[in-house]
Simulated assay, not measured.
Amino acid sequence: MVRDEFLNSVGVNYLFVPWICCLMLLESSPFLPRTAICHQVLWSVLVMPVLALDLKIYGQYLTKGKRHLAIVGNPTSQLTVIGNMVGAQAAARVGWRESAMGMFGVGMAHYVVLFVTLYQRLPGEHNGGVPATLRPVLFLFFAAPSVASLAWGSIIGHFDSASKMLFFLSLFLFMSLITRPVIFRKAMRKFDVAWWAYSFPLTALALASAQYAEEVKGAMPHALMLLLSSISVVVSLFLMVVTVLHTNLRFS
């Protein structure tokens, strides 16, 4: 089953998720100083699977050319970029700025390639696309630049102009998606675990908006932060309730 997942153009990207979660937990750990040796060792252990998957996926893009990427590229491919950005942010937090810059550079370069590839895909073109039930993963389009803005802010030490540009890009992509609800109509007809793909991108965007509001004082940035944070909380709570109800109905 692991092999089949590894060879699947959609499933292989989800192999990043456990390591992304662990790196985020490491960043938020209250028990260890961020520059402690133990913290740095844990980062090294957790980031090794991310780098191994990078070599597998990005290596294929490099050696097999753009035709291969056009076939296997899909919205879940952006999880590879998010893995690099979270690793970069965690590296910056533990004091390894050069490692953070390296992971950020690799992730950002491939985000540009993926974005252009997916942006140019013709309507109705299947080429490695996701089925209708998985369309919530389209929200990963704005998750990647949101996490990138947070990672760059951690590397530099403050939410600078580059972080703001990435935040505005993610905000624009978010607005582009929510103004076209018809895209998600089929996916919302029946509950699916893919609905949880809404929660992380919204949370990442809300966190980026909080950093932006902290850097840019004013009523509008704080109102935007409050709006996006509220949406993130409401969506997460809704998904929890719906998941519990669906599970109870399924096993009752």
Rank of each mutant, 00 (worst) to 15 (best):
A213K: 02
A132M: 13
T80S: 15
S161T: 12
P131H: 07
S28C: 11
L239I: 01
Y198R: 01
F174Q: 13
D4Q: 15
N84H: 02
R93C: 02
Y212K: 07
T133F: 15
C21K: 08
F238S: 08
L26N: 14
K164F: 15
P181C: 07
V17Q: 09
I183N: 03
S199C: 14
R97Y: 00
Y198L: 10
G107N: 00
P33M: 11
R250A: 12
P201A: 08
V112F: 06
G105W: 00
L227S: 08
I20N: 08
L134N: 08
Q211A: 14
W195D: 03
G73P: 01
L46Q: 06
S149E: 02
N84Q: 01
W196Y: 13
L169F: 12
V17G: 03
L150M: 15
R135L: 13
E125Q: 14
V47T: 13
L239M: 06
R189K: 15
I178R: 10
S28A: 13
G128D: 02
M85I: 00
V112S: 06
T247R: 07
L32P: 05
Y58F: 11
A144I: 05
S146V: 10
A132S: 12
L226I: 05
A206E: 06
H110V: 07
N127G: 08
L150V: 04
N84P: 02
E27V: 12
C21P: 00
A70Q: 07
L150G: 05
D192H: 15
P49Y: 09
M225C: 11
K186M: 11
A197W: 10
C22K: 14
N74I: 00
L239C: 05
G157I: 07
P221M: 03
R3C: 05
C22G: 13
M175D: 14
Q78D: 01
P221I: 05
K186C: 11
G128W: 08
L118A: 03
G107C: 01
L249T: 06
V241A: 10
T80W: 02
S230R: 02
I37Y: 10
A197M: 04
S29Y: 15
S176V: 09
G105M: 02
L79K: 00
Y61P: 08
A194F: 11
V216P: 01
T179S: 15
F142N: 04
F139Y: 15
M225K: 10
E98I: 04
M240E: 02
L150I: 10
L249C: 10
L245D: 04
V130R: 09
I231W: 06
Q40F: 07
C22H: 13
V81H: 00
T117M: 09
L69K: 01
L169G: 03
I178P: 07
A36L: 05
Q40Y: 05
V113H: 04
E27F: 08
L224S: 07
F115Q: 08
S77I: 01
L245V: 06
I178W: 09
F172W: 07
Y119D: 05
F16K: 04
F6G: 03
S170M: 04
P181K: 12
N74L: 01
P145S: 04
F6S: 11
N13Y: 14
R3L: 11
G218D: 06
A52Q: 14
F139E: 09
L138H: 15
F31H: 15
N8R: 03
M220C: 10
V216H: 08
V112E: 09
N84I: 00
Q78M: 07
L114N: 02
